[in-house]
Design a protein around this nucleic acid. Structure first.
Lengths: 340, 340
DNA sequence: CTGTTAGCGCGTTCAA
DNA sequence: TTGAACGCGCTAACAG
C-alpha cells in the first residue's frame, strides 16, 4: 500500500522546503518562477492533493457547512439543495446533510456532532428546538442562517419568500376569476409561515370586500394526507368553488379529495397551491400555484452563511424574496363553474 | 472570545495527563473510577467536546461518508437519504451530499474534493463517469459502494432492487386483469436498470403467451415530461388499454397525457408505475406501482460502505432486494374498460 | 492504571 | 525569495 504523498514528499522531490510548497499551493507569498515550476512538476508526478484535515487543524476552517432540516424527501426542502451546492462549491466548501425527522433530540445530536466536526456554519430550516437554544449556539460562535421556515430569534439571519404576499396573490387570482366561496387549507397553526399565508388570504378577501367565513378554513398540516382530510370536511360543510392550499403537497390531497367526491378540477372547484414544486407542472390538471424562488433563497442564505463564517456580519437580518403566481390548469373562471 | 477548551484544559482541571483524558473519553484502556469521575466533572464544567479534526488527523478516519448523485430533487434519490443517515449516525458518521446534475466534470470535481477531505467512503448513484475511472479510485484506496443505478465495475459492491422481477410483477398484474394491449414507457435505453425493466416486461408477456408489439414501447427517460410525450405518441399509434411506466415520475406524465386525450384512468387505461414514491399514494387516482425498498437499499449500502471503510471486505458484490407490487386505484380489470 | 514522548500533515512565524 | 522551527488538538506507543 503506497501511502498518500504529503507536502513533505513534494518538497523533497522539488528540492525545496515544505514552507515553500505550502506557499506555492496557496498562492501566499512570492515564489520564484523556477521553483514554482519545480513544485508544480513534483505535485503532478506525485499526484499530490493537500490533506484538508491537516489544513483545517491549523486554519480553523473546515470548508464545510451543514444543512439541518426535518426531511429531504419533502420536495421543497430538496429544491433548496442545488442553490446551496452551487454557492458552497464555488467557495470550495462541501455540504453535510442532516435530517432530523422533526425530532428535537436528533437536532441536538446533529448540532453536537457538527460542532465537534468544526463545521464553518449551519443552514437551518424547520427547526423544532427552542429559539433560545439556537441563540445560545450563536453566542458560542457557531454561524447559523435560517431559511424558509423561520424561528423566533433575532440573532439569526433569515431568508425566505414573502409568504403573506404570496398567499395574497393566490387568493386575488381566485377572486379575479369571480370566486367568492374560497376555502383555505392552512398549514400548521402557530407556525409563522403558515400564519403569514393565512393573513395573506384574509388580506385579499378583505381588500375585495368578501366576507370571511371561518367554515372555509381547515388545517392541512402541509401534507398530502392533511390536505385530503381537510378538504373532505370542507366539502361537506361549505359551498366552496375554490381552494387555496398552503402548499403544493397539500394541494395534491385537496385535488384527490375533490375528485373522489365526484367533482372536477377546475370545472367544479379551482385549486391553487404554494411552492411551485417540480411536480406541480405534472399533476392532472397541472397545478396553478405560487412560485417560491427556492434556488435564490438557498443561494442567498448560503452566501450569508459563508460571509458570517468569514467574519463578515450580515448587513440586514431579514431577506424577503418575491413570490410569483404561476397559472396552470387547476383554476378557471367561476362562470364555467357549476355551483353545487 | 473564549477559545474552545482543549483536551489539555480538561487534563489540567482534572489533574491528570491528556493521555488519560483521551483514554477515558474513548473508552480505550482501564481508568480508575476516581480519575474517571474527575475527568467527567472537568468535561462537564468546561463543556468540552473533542475536536474531531485533530482526531481524524491521527486516526485516519473522518467519520464522514459522502453521497454522490445527480439530483436530490428526484424523489427516489431523496428517499435513499433517511436509510443512509440512520446507519451513518449509528456509526457516528455524518454524510456529505454531492449533487452533480449528471455532469461528469462536477463528478470529478466532487470526487477530488472528497479525497482531499479524506472521507471514509462514498456512496454513488447514477454516476456518468466511466466505470474505469471508478475502478481506478477504488484501487487508490477509496471505498465505494454503488446503489440503485449500477455501473459496469466489478470492483464496486452494488445494492439494488431486482428490477427485472419488479417489471414482471407490474406486467403480470395487468395481464391478470385481462389486459393484453400493454404499453411500456421505458426509461433510457442503454441504462442497465432501464433495460432490466424492459426485460421483465417482456418476460411477463412471453410467459402469458401475449405477442410482443414494438409499437407498444416508447422511451420516457424516467421523467414526467418524457412519460407525457411517450404516451402521446403511443396513444395515437396503438390500441392500448394499459401502460407500465418505468418509474412513478414518468407515470405522472403518462396519466397526464391520458387525461388530456379525454380518456380516463383507470376506466379507459390502467397505469402502473415503479418506485412507490411517497406521492404515488396521493395522485388522482392513487398510483398502482412496484415498491422499491429504498430505505433498506440505502441501509444495506451504507453498512457495506462502513464495513469496507473499516477494512472488512464485502462478502458478495451483488445485493438484490425484493420488489413488491402495490395495488392502488390506477388499475382495473379490462372488463370495465371501454376498448377505444 | 497512568504519564511521557512522538508524531499525524499542514500553515506560519521569524530569520536569513 | 526561502528554510527552520513550532504548534494546531489529538491518539498511540512505551515505560513505569
Amino acid at each position: 500500500m503506497s501511502a498518500r504523498p504529503t507536502i513533505y514528499d513534494v518538497a523533497r522531490l522539488a528540492g525545496v522546503s515544505t514552507a515553500t510548497v505550502s506557499r506555492a499551493l496557496n498562492g501566499s507569498g512570492q515564489i520564484a518562477p523556477a521553483t514554482g515550476a519545480a513544485i508544480d512538476a513534483a505535485v503532478r508526478q506525485l499526484k499530490y492533493r493537500p490533506n484538508t484535515v491537516a489544513r483545517s487543524l491549523v486554519t480553523k476552517s473546515t470548508q464545510t457547512i451543514a444543512l439541518l432540516l426535518p426531511d429531504i424527501a419533502n420536495p421543497f426542502y430538496a429544491a433548496l439543495v442545488s442553490g446551496i451546492q452551487e454557492r458552497a462549491l464555488a467557495a470550495g466548501s462541501a455540504m453535510l446533510l442532516c435530517t432530523t425527522e422533526g425530532d428535537p433530540e436528533r437536532e441536538e445530536q446533529y448540532l453536537s456532532l457538527l460542532r465537534a466536526k468544526q463545521v464553518d456554519g449551519v443552514l437551518v430550516d424547520g427547526l423544532v428546538l427552542p429559539p433560545e437554544r439556537i441563540t445560545e449556539l450563536v453566542r458560542e460562535g457557531l454561524p447559523i442562517v435560517c431559511l424558509d421556515r423561520d424561528i423566533d430569534s433575532t440573532s439569526v439571519p433569515l431568508v425566505q419568500v414573502d409568504n403573506r404576499l404570496g398567499a395574497r396573490l393566490a387568493t386575488e387570482h381566485l377572486l379575479a376569476l369571480g370566486h367568492t366561496r374560497i376555502a383555505h387549507v392552512a398549514g400548521a397553526p402557530g407556525l409563522r409561515i403558515s400564519d403569514e399565508r393565512v393573513k395573506g388570504y384574509r388580506d385579499a378577501l378583505a381588500a375585495a370586500g368578501v366576507e370571511r367565513d371561518p367554515a372555509l378554513v381547515a388545517v392541512g398540516g402541509f401534507t398530502e394526507e392533511g390536505g385530503y382530510e381537510a378538504t373532505r370536511s370542507l366539502l361537506g360543510a361549505s359551498q366552496l368553488t375554490a381552494v387555496f392550499a398552503a402548499n403544493d403537497l397539500s394541494a395534491l390531497g385537496v385535488m384527490h379529495a375533490i375528485a373522489e367526491s365526484g367533482r372536477r378540477v377546475p370545472d367544479d372547484v379551482s385549486v391553487v397551491g404554494f411552492d411551485d414544486l417540480r411536480l406541480a407542472g405534472h399533476t392532472t390538471p397541472p397545478l396553478t400555484t405560487v412560485h417560491q424562488p427556492a434556488f435564490e433563497i438557498a443561494q442567498r442564505a448560503t452566501q450569508l452563511l459563508l460571509d458570517l463564517a468569514g467574519g463578515r456580519a450580515a448587513a440586514q437580518r431579514l431577506h424577503l424574496l418575491e413570490p410569483q403566481l404561476v397559472v396552470r390548469g387547476s383554476t378557471c373562471p367561476i362562470r364555467l363553474t357549476k355551483i353545487m
